[in-house]
Design a protein around this nucleic acid. Sequence first.
DNA 1: GTCTATAAACTGATAGAC
DNA 2: GTCTATCAGTTTATAGAC
Lengths: 215, 215
Amino acid sequence: MSQLDTVQRILDAAEVLFAERGFTETSLRTITSTAGVNLAAVNYHFGSKKELIQAVFERFLTPFTTSLDAELARLATEEEGSLQLDDLLQSLYRVALAGLASQGRDPRRFMRLLGLAYTQSQGHLRRFIVSRYGDSYRRFAGSLATALPHVDPVTFYWRLYFMLGATVFSLSSFDAIEAILREDFGAESSLEETLARLAPAAVAMLTAPVPAEGG
Amino acid sequence: MSQLDTVQRILDAAEVLFAERGFTETSLRTITSTAGVNLAAVNYHFGSKKELIQAVFERFLTPFTTSLDAELARLATEEEGSLQLDDLLQSLYRVALAGLASQGRDPRRFMRLLGLAYTQSQGHLRRFIVSRYGDSYRRFAGSLATALPHVDPVTFYWRLYFMLGATVFSLSSFDAIEAILREDFGAESSLEETLARLAPAAVAMLTAPVPAEGG
DNA sequence: GTCTATAAACTGATAGAC
DNA sequence: GTCTATCAGTTTATAGAC
């Protein structure tokens, strides 16, 4: 088995297991036995469990943010100075969905990992993501902000977090929610349909009238 | 030290530590040493770590759902048959905030624990919460649904999850988000102000026009 | 009800043979 | 680059003295 294969197999197994169980709940032994490689291979190739976690995120966040940046640049030249909110959100969702799906990766797993990065208090991971992908995030937030000139900055940023929360939370629990709705209403929901419901809901939230300041 | 004191001290320490670090990341040793009680006391009083986790949730979910049920009943008799969406959301937020604060409990911790219950894949906890508080949840969701008669059920439930995601996510990360906004804009946000921003955003999301079905 | 002592299992990491 | 064997530390849980 070549080195590339081993690294790849470890990353594949770790990505799936982390998304399913979380970081602390997934041992290196579970990862290596799932991947069919030796336990010592993780420390040989990645150095430590922390660095393996970062490598898992790097592998899907780098292509994701690269595509997102390209999409934002394309939008900016296309509609000079008049970025539409719908287009921006659709860019985000299209890149997240199609970009990953074309790689043969599961967007739901992507969202579960993003959710974990937020909620599991792995300080090293948060620092890694912020230092590595903070610029892309700020560029996207900035584009979104210019499409909402009438919303004051603080309200805008809170709403941005509301939107991120709604997205990460509902997509990372997609399977569970979908199962409930299927049982209760017999209605199947695809990920595409859910994003088609989420986008207008997010737009409505971002563009809601700002109540008069109450103190 | 009386038994009640010991049980109470364990619950207090566990609640804080779980909210800060998560379940797996918090050992019984950390809990008992923080609480100033013996390690064996946890298993004596609660049986196991899992049952301690459930007890922590039971201690704040029972008064919360009791208050929420009472508030919903009060609203239903007050405005017969014409429940207002604003009122319902304000009930939820007021009960969550004031009800807990009057107990001397931190609502942010409450939200962090709720977020953990969702994201950390503790199957036993999800089963416990669903079996114990599922009825209250369904009553609240039902009230909300009747206030939105023009939204089809499936769209309504997805939006309900979007709303829950926005709420749990942003409030459980309240301190972190607040710190960022304070640094970038010098604007302090209180929990009350954030809920005052969240409520209209949630209403806008729930009441957004439903796009024509595309498939 | 509280304590000490310990069982039994698991964890990440590494030294050294091949 | 891969393997075995093992270290050193941690975890939950419990038996038994007080």
